[in-house]
Write a protein that binds this DNA or RNA. Structure first.
Lengths: 246, 246
DNA sequence: CGATCCTTTGATATGTTTCAAGCTTAGTGG
DNA sequence: CCACTAAGCTTGAAACATATCAAAGGATCG
């Protein structure tokens, strides 16, 4: 149960409202979506590749990641999600899940039945658009990750990942720069960037010695944001976040 | 102008109908979408990174690809599209294009105004779902490419790409296996797989000598489909195509 | 039928992986 | 609350896949 009387899905609605205009009625319809609350521990599966899902996931607290496994057993993390993110929306439209969803740390999620999503989108076309836009942004982030993994070297990849997570957490109001929580092991960072845990380790050390970041103990401090962005070839446009005052 | 009196958007409608159920009225509404026909030559840009687009692209003939450019100038191709594909749907929801769309060979495309898309989806919820599902499949393909580029070696990557294109062309009724048209240079194959043109060349030669494929002159012949799939760690599930009789 | 783009080849450089071991930290049960 | 254990981090040396550079040969298209 949430700590206060803030509705469970409030963070999700806020995030959607950042990118799409929602009337009070539409926002309320989203808040009223039926859902079931679930807790999970680090590593627990929320969805398994091949599952036939009947609901989509809204992350209420903690972090989850989506991954795929190659035939040789290698894992590729394809996205990382933070609180307020709609994770399983894609699966609402696809017969069978084509990837895994796992908890990164202790998480709380809400499961919303696909049918409830469909119903609310039929009743409110603006909601359909907002959710569809969310799916489109998801796609944009995959494209950037593809560029990251396909065409950048190890240092750039890690820097880019750290920039993205910093900005997303800040945009979601989950952290004040320059520090944020990152409950990822170096192995998981490697799985997200197409690198080995060993090489991530050496890369992070190098970045530390260069005065770019300070990482460890489940959190990251960015010591030179401007330079880290330059190193990571980071440009926020692909996140399609609203322009900030700063 | 198309060669016969088949409606320009027929291939798109067929493709959508493979994954979603559409009534006759819905199919007709899609066929009736207002559009402008455009031709383009190899390399021509249909959308540029940063563009503010007002229409989405349906590919009528030929091939296009989407790409992103890293700060150092390296290109990553993030998807390849064939005739009947809806290419710019994502951009309908995003302020500014986050990638390029370019012609691979001589192409004919239809441009449909975003507004027309919105209108038809409001009138026909089933169309909204079908298009949304198309966006979701797009996402699924990005995830698989991410796995391909991040966790497979050169031979697997190229094999996987060739399998995907073979299957998609066959599913679209554009080719009979085992041969199909592939107007990509080895450099472009490299850009799609995160490799160098030189290394693609050596990899393709090896695959040729192994009796897997026969490539050249803008087309590919798969000489051992079963083995190529195994080599490429290819599993069609992520394409979310309807099950075939075979 | 020339010019440009694409493929091929060789030699060398380099980034990243692999393997293996020691070290540190965090969590758990007695 | 300490000791034990497992998980994660760090380090080094060697192997490997892929990139880079450079140049020659083929194909394609106006």
């Amino acid at each position: 149960m949430p700590t206060s009387n803030i509705p469970a899905l409030a963070a999700m609605v806020n995030k959607l409202a950042q990118r799409s205009t929602l009337s009070a009625a539409e926002a309320q319809a989203l808040l009223d979506l039926p859902h079931r609350l679930i807790k999970a521990d680090p590593g627990n599966y929320l969805v398994r590749n091949g599952d036939r899902t009947d609901s989509c996931i809204v992350l209420l607290s903690g972090f989850v990641y989506r991954s795929k496994i190659a035939g040789n057993g290698a894992r590729q993390i394809v996205s990382i999600h933070l609180s307020g993110d709609l994770v399983g929306l894609q699966n609402s439209f696809l017969d069978v899940a084509d990837h895994n969803v796992q908890a990164l740390n202790h998480v709380e999620v809400a499961l919303i039945p696909h049918q409830a999503i469909f119903d609310v989108t039929e009743a409110f076309p603006a909601i359909a658009q907002a959710l569809w836009r969310d799916t489109a942004v998801d796609g944009s982030m995959f494209r950037e990750w593809l560029l990251n993994v396909g065409r950048r070297d190890a240092r750039q990849r890690v820097a880019h990942l750290l920039c993205e997570l910093a900005l997303r957490q800040e945009a979601a109001g989950l952290s004040e720069s320059p520090s944020y929580i990152l409950p990822m092991t170096q192995e998981q960072i490697g799985d997200a960037t197409g690198l080995t845990a060993v090489h991530v380790n050496r890369t992070v050390q190098r970045m530390r010695s260069e005065g770019l970041i300070n990482a460890g103990k489940g959190s990251v401090t960015i010591t030179d944001w401007e330079r880290l962005q330059r190193v990571g070839d980071f440009c926020r446009a692909y996140l399609h976040l609203p322009a900030t005052a700063a």
